[in-house]
C-alpha cells in the first residue's frame, strides 16, 4: 500500500503556493495535516502529479476574537489547537462541542480546520458547523481572494466549489448567537465519521427575543445542509423538524439504509434544538 510517485513542493509563502496551484491545477494535491490525503495517496485513490505541502505557510492564526466580527481561522489551524483556544476563550461553543467529536486525540493534534473543510466528507463536523453558522470559506488564487458561503461551498461528497487553482486559505465563523447552540452526532464507533451529525443555533434579537433557528444536518445527504426557521419555527420546533425531514433525501448504503439515517436525523435534530433552547435560557 504505497503511493504513486509524485513531485513534492514545499512553498514558504502563500504566493509561492498559489503559483504552484495556478500551474498544476487539478494535478496538484494540497497537503495540510495529511490525515485525509495521506491514506488516499497510500491507497492510490489520489494520484496527483505534485503534492503541495502547505505546512510552512503562515496560515496558523485565529483572528479577531472580538464579538462583533466573524472569527477567522487560518486553514492550517490545528484542530486540537482550536479546541483548546475555544475552550479557554469561551467562544464558539458549537465548534468547541463539534471538535470534541472529531476523530481522535491523535488525529486532532495534526488535523487542520482547512483540511477538513477542503476534504468535504459529508459527515464531517467542521463543514457542518460552518454551514449551520452561515460561515464562509476564504479561497485564494493568484487572481485574488473570494469568500464562498459555506452553503454553496459543499457541493457533494468530497466535492466543493474550490477551483483547481485555488487554496482554502481560511474560514470565517460569524457570530452564532451564543449560548444557544448545540451539537450531537451518532457514529458506529467513537471517533468514526458520524452516520448523522446535527447542529442547532437559536438566534436572538438585541432585545433578547428569539429571532430564528438554524438546524444543520451532516451525514444524511452527500453534503451538509442547513434548515432555517423563523421565530415561529422555534415555538413549533417539532413541526419545523418534521418539515425539514420531508425535504431530506438520505443516502442509502450497505451499512445504513435511508430510513435509519432519517430516523437518526429526526432524533438528533430534535435533541440539538432542545439543548440549544435550554442553553439560550428558553425552556422548550
Amino acid at each position: 500500500m504505497k503511493p504513486v510517485p509524485f513531485d513534492y513542493a514545499r512553498p514558504e509563502t502563500l504566493e509561492e503556493a498559489l503559483a504552484l496551484m495556478a500551474n498544476y491545477g487539478d494535478d496538484a494535491a494540497p497537503l495540510a495535516g495529511g490525515l485525509s490525503l495521506g491514506p488516499m495517496l497510500n491507497l492510490r485513490l489520489a494520484r496527483p502529479a505534485v503534492v503541495v505541502d502547505l505546512g510552512r505557510l503562515a496560515l496558523h492564526e485565529i483572528d479577531s476574537l472580538s464579538p462583533d466580527r466573524p472569527v477567522e481561522t487560518g486553514a492550517l489551524v490545528r484542530q486540537a489547537f482550536l479546541q483548546q483556544r475555544l475552550k479557554a476563550d469561551l467562544i464558539m461553543p458549537l465548534v468547541g462541542e463539534a471538535l470534541d467529536c472529531i476523530g481522535h486525540y491523535q488525529t486532532r493534534a495534526r488535523g487542520t480546520v482547512g483540511g477538513s473543510v477542503a476534504h468535504a466528507d459529508p459527515a464531517a463536523e467542521l463543514p457542518l458547523c460552518l454551514v449551520t453558522m452561515d460561515g464562509s470559506v476564504w479561497l485564494q488564487s493568484t487572481a485574488g481572494r473570494r469568500n464562498v458561503p459555506a452553503t454553496a461551498f459543499f457541493e457533494a461528497a468530497l466535492t466543493t466549489a474550490r477551483h483547481p487553482d485555488e487554496l482554502v486559505a481560511g474560514l470565517e465563523w460569524p457570530d452564532a448567537g451564543e449560548p444557544g447552540t448545540a451539537f450531537a452526532e451518532f457514529a458506529l464507533r467513537h471517533g468514526d465519521f458520524a452516520i448523522v451529525a446535527a447542529a442547532a443555533i437559536v438566534r436572538r434579537n438585541d432585545d433578547g427575543r428569539v429571532s430564528g433557528i438554524r438546524l444543520g444536518l451532516g451525514g444524511v445527504e452527500d453534503a451538509p445542509r442547513v434548515f432555517v426557521g423563523s421565530d415561529d419555527a422555534v415555538n413549533n420546533f417539532k413541526d419545523f423538524v418534521e418539515q425539514s425531514m420531508a425535504v431530506l433525501r438520505p443516502t442509502d448504503d450497505p451499512v445504513c439504509d435511508a430510513p435509519y439515517r432519517l430516523a437518526l436525523a429526526r432524533k438528533l435534530g430534535l435533541a440539538v434544538i432542545v439543548r440549544a433552547l435550554e442553553r439560550a435560557g428558553l425552556h422548550p
Binding site: V255, P259, A263
Partner: peptide
C-alpha cells in the same frame, strides 16, 4: 448486532 440492524428489527414497519 449493529445499531442499524437492531433499529431495523425494532422498526420493521418503516419502509
Amino acid at each position: 448486532l449493529t445499531p442499524p440492524t437492531l433499529w431495523r428489527m425494532i422498526h420493521e414497519d418503516i419502509a
